[in-house]
Structures are given as C-alpha cells and as structure tokens.
C-alpha cells in the first residue's frame, strides 16, 4: 500500500507534466495572438503588437517559452494574468476560499441527502419513501443547474427574503449556492447508492450472511454498504470534476468570486497565463482527489490488488 501511494505520487508529477504540455499546446493552437488580445481595439497597430509580444516574451521560440513556463511552475510561479496584471497564484488563492466553502457545503448537502435517500429507497424498496426519493432524484438529475439556481433565488431570496439575492459577504450567502449544487449532486449520489446497494444485496456473501442468521442491520451495514460504496466513491471522485463546472455556473448566477467563475471568465477573455496557471492548479487538486479515491478503493475492496 505504501509503495503504491509513493508510486502514485510520482505519477502525479507525470500527470501534471502532461497537463502543462496539453494546456500549453492547446493555448498555442488557439488562433488568437495574446498580444493582439491584450491590445483589443488597438490590435491593428503592428508597432504595438511587436512591442508587446517582445514584452511578454512571445517572440521567443515555443520550446523556450514552454521551458520557462515549466521552470516558473516548479518555483510556484504561474505567471501574471494579462487581465488582472496580478500573479495568477495570488488571484487563485484569493478566490479559493469561496470555492472551497461552496464545494464543501455542496458536498455535505449532497452526501447527506444523497446517501440517506439512496439507502432508504434501496432498503425500503417499493415503499412510498422509495418512490418519493427516486422521483426527487430524477428531478434533481434532470434539472439544469442555473435554472435551479434562479428558482431558488427567486423563491428564497426575493419572495421570502431569507437570503441576499447574490454576492458573497458571509457564510449565509453560501447557503443557496451550496443547496443548488448540493441538490444536483445528491440526486446522482442517491441514484448510484440505490442501484449499487440493490446490486450488492443480491450477492452470494450477503445471502450467506443472511442465511447464517446475522441480524439484518449488521448485514446491511457490514456487508452491503462496504461493497456498495465502491461505485459511489468513484462517483463522488468523478463529481469533483463536474463540481467545479457546476460551481462556476452557480458562482456566476449568485455572483460568488470563486475559482470556477474566474477560470471561465479567463477563458472567455483569452487570458492565457490565467488559464494555464488555473488549469495546473485545478489539476493538482483533482489528481490528489483521484489518488485519494483510488486508496479508498483499495481499502473498501480488498480483492483489488495494487502490485
């Protein structure tokens, strides 16, 4: 197990290198010239373009630019945003807390609602609870996230006045966005939990355990959950990818200054260093979460070997 983790950490570096390469290539395949992008209306002025290209180091060969970029990344320097003129790292760190809080809130709400309703409906299959929670899950999965965000905004903020309509001044402002994101996630978690439990419940070892006369509670908690959680954990790990996308849209509707919104805006503004740096940063987080998920796998399903 320890060797496995060490190997994974080494691979992490490999993945990050791949990410820098893919991002760098994508950013340089993009037809726009960053210097012209920066100049906007003045982009027709060739003197300024040449001058700015030189200032930004864009006149150097691509390979050199790439190595300088990687060298910077190794020193923790992701470059300076064209748009904000500030260092990419500081911009991300500035916006990280909001996104972490939002994601965390959404995850907690998603897990609480998702797991409990998934478990209830699997254990009490065909009951009213099952129908209700699965219908809820269906609706949640099928709901466009900004549509839900707007409905919640209209009802809880405008009609009832319980929350600010948007903005981010305190934790209270994270309730609606977290609920929006959380509800969407709870739906897929509930679905996955239910189907996974139903699958495991029919397994031989569960039947054996039951046949041996083990109490139902112990059967469910010891034998079923542990195994049923594997795909659920995968799903949660995967959701982190979607979580940032969902967070970006939620952040946009609720005007939360988070990383997701920052990155989407940067892509639209063609803020190359911001996109490059942002992606690398997000990559680190995702890779770490994936590693964590894989380790959880091994823990949950001892039949998976890692050597």
């Amino acid at each position: 197990m320890r060797n496995y983790i060490i190997r994974r950490l080494l691979l992490l570096i490999l993945v990050l290198w791949g990410v820098t390469l893919v991002t760098f290539i994508l950013m340089h395949v993009v037809p726009g010239d960053p210097a012209k992008v920066l100049l906007g209306k003045l982009s027709g002025n060739e003197v300024l373009v040449t001058k700015l290209r030189h200032q930004l180091g864009l006149d150097k060969p691509l390979v050199v630019q790439y190595f300088e970029f990687v060298k910077g990344v190794l020193r923790g320097d992701l470059g300076n945003s064209y748009k904000f003129k500030a260092s990419v790292m500081s911009l991300i760190l500035e916006r990280m807390p909001a996104t972490i809080k939002l994601t965390f809130g959404a995850l907690i709400i998603g897990l609480l609602i998702g797991l409990s309703s998934g478990i209830i409906s699997a254990v009490r299959r065909y009951s009213v609870w099952d129908t209700f929670s699965m219908l809820f899950a269906f609706i949640g999965v099928s709901m466009p996230v900004f549509w839900l965000a707007m409905l919640l905004q209209l009802f809880f903020a405008v009609k009832l006045g319980w929350f600010h309509v948007s903005g981010f001044e305190g934790l209270r402002d994270l309730v609606l966005p977290s609920v929006t994101l959380g509800l969407i996630y709870s739906a897929s978690i509930a679905r996955m939990t239910r189907s996974s439990i139903l699958e495991v419940i029919r397994m031989d070892y569960v039947r054996t355990a039951r046949a041996k006369g083990a109490p139902e509670r112990i059967v469910i908690f010891r034998h079923v959950f542990r195994n049923a959680l594997i795909p659920v954990v995968t799903l949660i790990g995967m959701q982190f990818g979607g979580l940032l996308t969902g967070a970006a849209l939620t952040e946009t509707v609720f005007q939360i200054p988070g990383v997701g919104k920052l990155l989407i805006n940067s892509t639209l503004d063609l803020d190359y260093p911001m996109i490059q740096g942002g992606v690398i940063f997000v990559a680190i987080i995702f890779v770490l979460i994936n590693l964590f998920v894989d380790i959880l796998y091994a823990y949950l399903d001892p039949t998976i070997r890692y050597d």
């Binding site: 490999l14 990410v19 994508l26 990818g241 970006a248 892509t267 890779v287």
Partner: peptide, 27 residues
C-alpha cells in the same frame, strides 16, 4: 498506467473549461 494517466490528465481539466478551450482551438 498510460490510459489512466491520460484519463487523469483529461480529468484534471474542468469539463466546461476544456470544452471552451477546444472550441477556441478548432474554431
């Protein structure tokens, strides 16, 4: 290892961001 690393690299891109980048890259 290769496929999963490729997947990890892909996975490391937030999907919307990656989609935008592709659209920008190929028009």
């Amino acid at each position: 290892l290769l496929i999963m690393r490729l997947a990890d690299i892909m996975f490391a891109f937030p999907s919307l961001l990656f989609a935008i980048a592709i659209i920008f890259a190929i028009g």
